[in-house]
Simulated scan of single mutants.
Amino acid sequence: MNPFPPRADAAPPLRLLVADDNPVVRAGLTALLSGRADTTVVAEATDGREAYEAALRHRPDVILLDVRMPEIDGISALPHLVRLAPVMMLTYSHETETVREALRLGAGGYLVHGEFTTEQLVRAVRDVREGRPHVTPGAAKALLEGIKSSASAHVDPQHPPILRESPTKTLSHMQPSMGQSSRSRYRLSTREAEIMDLIASGMTNQQIAATCFISEKTVKNHINRIFAKLQTTTRSQAAAKWLGVA
């Protein structure tokens, strides 16, 4: 008989579904997460279809989903799986478009293998279960590179902007960039300006939270202050003012 029975108020372990076509990865995650008191793997799947069927049958707390799988891949299955449980992407894929598409389709987090410890994985799973987005550095870098690429796409290399500056003026006298001038005009903090850039790029609150490593509640607080400073009430109005087209 155990002389130290578990506390009556101990939280039940998180019930997880692991979907990955690689049997080594799948077995490793299952052994890792089932050997703890706070997590357990209730089902495994090798593709998107199996993941959906297993989620219907077992109703896990969180689904750990790979991107590249045969038959139905993770991205294709994602819109259906998020209706059943929060989904954490757990994969080797960190291409910009893949990360952005996964978050756009509702993934609560994006972890790249090799960029987290066991404790960080468990903490990320709990965060996603509670609605707090979580991404590893590789995924965050991919998101930021995507934003930079989108901005660069609007510049025509055949027709660079003409700087009508006097030859006697130095670089320090040139007009600051749009973001810098807007930030000064509206008196936004560095963090508020960063978030406003992400809003203008079309990101949702969840995506912004994941990119900036903050909670969605914190994002909303920043946005409320931004709206007040820009004297706007919608994201589109704020973006138009920020980009100088309103």
Results as ranks from 00 to 15, higher is better:
Pro3Leu: 14
Phe4Arg: 07
Pro6Gln: 09
Ala8Ser: 07
Asp9Ala: 06
Pro13Glu: 12
Leu14Gln: 03
Arg15Ile: 15
Val25Lys: 04
Arg26Asn: 05
Arg26Gln: 11
Gly28His: 10
Leu29Phe: 09
Leu29Lys: 03
Ser34His: 04
Gly35Val: 05
Val41Gln: 05
Val42Trp: 10
Glu44Tyr: 11
Glu44Ala: 06
Ala45Cys: 05
Asp47Thr: 01
Gly48Cys: 01
Gly48Ser: 02
Glu53Pro: 00
Arg57Asp: 06
Arg57Gly: 00
Arg57Glu: 11
Arg57Leu: 06
Arg59Thr: 14
Asp61Leu: 03
Asp61Tyr: 05
Asp61Gln: 07
Val62Gly: 00
Ile63Lys: 00
Leu65Gln: 06
Leu65His: 02
Leu65Tyr: 02
Asp66Pro: 01
Arg68Cys: 08
Pro70Ala: 03
Pro70Gln: 07
Glu71Lys: 12
Asp73Val: 05
Leu78Asn: 03
Pro79Ser: 06
His80Arg: 14
Leu84Asp: 00
Met88Asp: 05
Tyr92Leu: 04
His94Asp: 14
Thr96Tyr: 06
Thr96Val: 06
Thr98Tyr: 08
Val99Gly: 02
Arg100Leu: 14
Arg100Val: 09
Leu103Phe: 11
Arg104Lys: 09
Arg104Gly: 01
Gly106Cys: 02
Gly108Pro: 12
Gly109Cys: 02
Leu111Val: 08
Leu111Trp: 09
Val112Lys: 03
His113Pro: 01
Gly114Met: 10
Gln120Val: 11
Gln120His: 11
Gln120Leu: 08
Leu121Gly: 02
Val125Gln: 03
Val128Cys: 03
Pro133Tyr: 15
His134Thr: 08
Lys141Val: 03
Ala142Cys: 04
Leu144Cys: 08
Ile147Cys: 04
Ile147Leu: 09
Ile147Pro: 00
His154Met: 15
Asp156His: 08
His159Arg: 14
Arg164Ser: 08
Pro167Phe: 04
Pro167Val: 00
Thr168His: 14
Lys169Tyr: 15
Lys169Arg: 15
Leu171Ala: 07
Leu171Glu: 14
His173Gly: 00
Pro176Ala: 05
Ser177Glu: 11
Met178Val: 15
Gln180Thr: 14
Ser184Asp: 13
Ser184Arg: 14
Tyr186Glu: 10
Leu188Val: 04
Ser189Gly: 09
Ala193Val: 14
Ala193Pro: 03
Glu194Met: 12
Ile195Gln: 04
Asp197Trp: 07
Asp197Asn: 12
Asp197Ala: 09
Ile199Asn: 01
Ala200Trp: 04
Ala200Glu: 11
Asn205Glu: 11
Asn205Leu: 06
Asn205Lys: 05
Gln207His: 10
Gln207Phe: 10
Ile208Val: 11
Ala209Trp: 15
Ala209Gly: 06
Cys212Glu: 12
Val219Asn: 01
Lys220Met: 12
Asn221Arg: 11
Ile223Gln: 09
Asn224Met: 12
Ile226Gln: 04
Ala228Tyr: 09
Ala228Glu: 15
Ala228His: 10
Lys229Tyr: 08
Gln231Cys: 07
Gln231Arg: 14
Gln231Phe: 02
Gln237Ile: 00
Ala238His: 13
Ala240Tyr: 13
Ala240Pro: 10
Ala240Phe: 11
Leu243Ser: 08
Gly244Trp: 15
Gly244Arg: 13
Val245Pro: 09
Ala246Tyr: 14
Ala246Phe: 13
Ala246Leu: 08
